[in-house]
Design a binder for these strands. Sequence first.
DNA 1: AAACTTACTGACTAGTCAGTCAGCATAGCC
DNA 2: GGCTATGCTGACTGACTAGTCAGTAAGTTT
Lengths: 199, 199
Amino acid sequence: MARDADARKSAILAAVAEVIVEIGFTAMTVADVARRAEVSTALVHYHFSSKSDLIRAAISVAGEEERSSREAIAARDASAQDRIAEMLIGSLPEGPDDPTWLLWIETWGEIRRLPEVRRLMEDLDRHELESISALIVSGRANGEFACEDPVATAQRLVALRDGLAVQRTLFSASAVEDAARLLRSAMSRNLGLPSDDPF
Amino acid sequence: MARDADARKSAILAAVAEVIVEIGFTAMTVADVARRAEVSTALVHYHFSSKSDLIRAAISVAGEEERSSREAIAARDASAQDRIAEMLIGSLPEGPDDPTWLLWIETWGEIRRLPEVRRLMEDLDRHELESISALIVSGRANGEFACEDPVATAQRLVALRDGLAVQRTLFSASAVEDAARLLRSAMSRNLGLPSDDPF
DNA sequence: AAACTTACTGACTAGTCAGTCAGCATAGCC
DNA sequence: GGCTATGCTGACTGACTAGTCAGTAAGTTT
């Protein structure tokens, strides 16, 4: 029975992510989650002590996915430049209402009310900055590009990606449909690459 | 009596902004607003047909302030470069939990549920992009700097500012205490200024 | 001075929410 | 066959919510 129980617990967490993406953090109720996972509301409270606990668990899962996908990219056998591009441009929203970005933006708005979530997000943020600055350092070491301050450069690129992602996710995509192009040209400038960019 | 009535209506709107900044969008109730403004909940519903209407009005006021402060800067008698810097760097959060940025970040998270608010935010976003690209065009015209694509440059700078602002508002400020410096050096690069920056 | 409008309130309601609880079924152990 | 633990549920509750409504007081118009 332990197998079944674990499966249902996972189903509940998956349902949380779905409901948040669909109707948002605020509007989400325990009843919504239970209905989606086809269990009773009492079971949700059986596995998760409170609604905050439920949310924290769901965000923790999403963060873990993000983190491991980043590590997979870092471990790839490709140039530092390509791996940085994959991390940054690959993480841009696919279009308006991209589920992953909606989840993060919703989460930003809720962070103040959920201290543990704040810690999760801070860790995730730090992990991304460290991953990218490490790649910059290695790319610089093997002569791919020149870069005076890897940490500041990583901060700038990540911040730019975040800002573009917010616009692209929340507002009409038209103004930012070329987000990838903007990011790529910023990479060229910031990493001191030979400017082979049309921009 | 119209004077008094208007004053109380404004007091309600001010209370909304205060409550949102303090406890957030989600947690805010009509009763909180009424208590803060020292009126009955019924009066809130007398002036504003619904809670959404109340929120929309409060955000509209905040947006109007943003817009007019931007126009004041644009009209100033200073170099284009200085006016752009004032708009971008001047709008960075003053520190973690900056009220204005908390309001915007909370609003981003709520946009999907409030279509009119989405329109307000889109307009505000467009206005900022237009203001800055206009300044870039004028700075280029009088030879202050070179810039191939004013619109794309404005998009990049605004996105960078947004991303830095989110980090600085939500997470520990230490990692981004130099947000202004990052932004300024990005300006130098993007506007093709002579690099007199230490970075 | 009567009729009407504006500004406002206390008391209320219908509905929703997270969380509780007693109890049931099944499985493993003795 | 009895005993206990785990997984699970239906029925419930107390707290709280946005919004309503009848009524009042003060000013404006006729």
